[in-house]
Computed example of a mutant assay.
Amino acid sequence: MDAPGAGHVYLMFDSGIDEDQADDYFQPNDYVPFEGKAWIPVETTLYGQGDFRTAWRNGVQEYYQRKSEGTVNEVDLRTARLITYPPGRIESVTSPPPTRQQMLAFVQSDIQQFAAYVRQIVGEPQNTPLNLYNAGAHYLRIGRLQESLDLMDRVIALDNNFADAYNTKGVIYTKMGQYDRSNFDQALDMFNQGLVLEPSNAGIRLNLAIVYILRGGDGDQGRALQEYNQAQQLDPNLQDALRGIIDEP
């Protein structure tokens, strides 16, 4: 970000999150929508003087203040070489890097602040199955698997007939399977418990088929095909859901 009137250049980076999904991850005005992505402004002069959240908070406040004044321009570094800027003079400043202990403290602070920030976005749900489920689904959307799992457990503790909670737990364990393949077995157990409650739930049967494919054990290909066929019978819209992934005879 170029602020000509301030004689200052700010930095913002692409979070990798699409703009239309940003509200799941950020509070309003905590990011900059730019080229279809959510970008994070940071005040780099705070390097070594505080945690990331402080640099982020200062950067985003400065951006929106200058944006309202019309004194900031977004410049993509990929095309910046096509723009000519007048040479500047920067005084030499010695800035020693943080020590290992300081870096660990900064990282720990960032982790704690991010967890608190996410809780603010999701909100503290009322202790009812539906509210807890919705909060858990939000955590799942932003990849906070353990928080989502904990909330689904609370849903089931209040209502053990909440089929979607079992299904969501199955999805969580499926995602965890990339780190520990034993989680695929737990995912299958959750999906099967969901089917006991809702045997005609096509989505759960499709999820079962996916886990069988991912687990890849003896006979899993046949089990996947069986669940996939039943899912298609229940919901014809799923006919092409696993095309090219599952081998049909």
Rank of each mutant, 00 (worst) to 15 (best):
D2A: 12
A3W: 12
P4A: 03
G5R: 13
L11S: 14
F13T: 11
F13S: 02
D14G: 12
G16E: 09
G16D: 12
I17E: 13
D20A: 01
F26R: 00
P28R: 01
N29S: 06
D30S: 14
D30T: 11
Y31W: 15
E35W: 08
E35R: 12
K37H: 13
I40R: 07
V42E: 14
T44I: 03
T45Q: 09
L46A: 11
Y47L: 08
Q49C: 03
Q49P: 01
G50P: 03
D51G: 11
W56V: 06
G59D: 10
Q65K: 14
R66I: 04
S68R: 08
S68L: 07
G70T: 06
G70P: 03
V72N: 00
E74P: 04
R81L: 08
I83N: 05
T84Q: 11
Y85E: 04
P87K: 12
R89W: 00
R89V: 11
S92C: 03
S92W: 09
V93I: 15
V93G: 05
T94D: 10
P96C: 00
P96M: 05
P97M: 02
Q102N: 06
V107I: 15
S109L: 09
D110K: 07
I111N: 02
F114I: 10
F114M: 13
A115Y: 06
Y117W: 12
G123N: 07
E124K: 13
T128W: 02
P129E: 01
L132W: 03
Y133R: 06
N134K: 13
N134E: 15
A135I: 00
R141F: 05
I142W: 05
I142S: 09
Q146T: 07
D153R: 10
V155S: 04
A157C: 01
D159M: 02
A163K: 13
A163M: 11
N167P: 01
T168P: 04
K169W: 02
K169H: 07
K169T: 01
G170T: 00
V171P: 03
Y173V: 05
Y173Q: 08
F184H: 05
D185N: 11
F191D: 11
G194H: 09
G194N: 05
V196S: 14
E198I: 08
E198A: 15
P199K: 04
S200I: 11
G203L: 09
I204M: 15
Y212L: 04
R215L: 05
R215A: 00
G219T: 12
D220H: 07
A224E: 04
A224Y: 06
A224G: 02
Y228E: 00
N229K: 07
Q233E: 10
A241I: 09
R243G: 11
R243F: 13
E248V: 09
E248C: 04
E248S: 08
